[in-house]
Design a protein around this nucleic acid. Structure first.
Lengths: 188, 188
DNA sequence: ATCCTTTTTTGACCTAGGTCAAAAAATCTG
DNA sequence: CAGATTTTTTGACCTAGGTCAAAAAAGGAT
């Protein structure tokens, strides 16, 4: 499972030039084309990407249907957190929605940075805390708010998503069917 | 919001006797009686409790109805994570379900430990990571599994809860109404 | 035991949102 | 532009689970 809403840009202040220097030799710049898979379902996620440019979708299969669980934008991290930490096969694909440029860092290197640098460890903590808070909020909304409300909230908070994803993809982010979203849209 | 499923006991190996020594002067042992409020809705959560003995409920009000969002047992942390980190008023009460004994540590001291000790920082990271993974899994089940399935899973994974909470409280953990839970129980 | 209070169950009914299939729009391709 | 393909909308119908209210059970007290 994934949810990489904690943004790296927010953590920039915590990282010294020394921390950057320490990480530098590990960083690899990578490119992906639209529809490339950054991670295949069943594989253990052994990298963490920081998105320089482009958009990634975290996609699961529920029955026959693809569900977009999360969208990651430039300035955000992109990884299958559960798989990454538990070292277990990912239940989702991560797929490029657009051409992408990312900085990749693999599992061992991340652990190395955590071991050697208190600041990186802290970034890791803050990232996880934010992701957690975000996941709880989403869970709460799904349980206690209507689909209509969630759609309005998405419009306000992540309007980019409306432009970029298909109806079905947006619906799955809201946790509803495509038809229901179409009906919500129909009425004003 | 809260979800303190990451257990401290799991982190014990990470903490040296020196870390313990560092924390010692900050720790306060506290006692609560059944139904005491450890945190009131509207207050900023400025402590973290580690539960030595007893059980705490994290409770929100949806309309008129109390919803149990999370249950914390002995060996687990207990705090309103969102309020604690964001320094914003909690949307929930935390209430003692039983007589409790806890070790309390307040916000500034926690930050102090994070600042001074890499190991404590790491415990904080792992705690948040686990809580996040857990929250995502719960969210997934609410979205894609039936109430019946979630009930079976609760029986398997947290049977204590069945013994300790009322029907309505269990129902709210499962994200369903009390009547629905009663009906699920009725059939086998 | 008996009365009182709380909790759980049952019944009748309702609704948000799902499913399936077809129509309509939009997009692509030569 | 015509035709083919994909995406979105609409319609008809269904279902899991909600709500409200009353009945039944289970727990206290005295």
């Amino acid at each position: 499972m994934d949810n990489t809403s904690g943004l790296f840009k927010d953590f920039a202040g915590l990282i010294s030039s020394e921390d950057i220097k320490m990480a530098q030799p590990f960083l690899k710049t990578l490119h992906f084309e639209k529809d490339d898979l950054l991670l295949k379902k069943g594989e253990v996620c052994s990298f963490l990407y920081y998105i320089i440019d482009g958009i990634a979708l975290y996609i699961t299969l529920e029955g026959k249907k693809e569900q977009v669980v999360h969208v990651s934008f430039a300035g955000e991290f992109c990884l299958a957190l559960y798989s990454f930490y538990a070292r277990l096969p990912s239940e989702a694909n991560i797929r490029a929605l657009t051409k992408m440029q990312v900085i990749g860092l693999d599992y061992e290197k991340v652990q190395h940075l955590f071991d050697k640098s208190k600041n990186w460890e802290r970034v890791g903590r803050l990232f996880a805390e934010r992701a957690f808070i975000d996941a709880l909020r989403t869970k709460h909304d799904i349980q206690h708010k209507t689909a209509h409300y969630r759609y309005q909230k998405l419009i306000e908070q992540r309007p980019e998503i409306l432009q970029l994803l298909s109806l079905g993809q947006i619906a799955s982010i809201l946790g509803i069917s495509q038809e229901t979203l179409s009906r919500i849209r129909a009425k004003r």
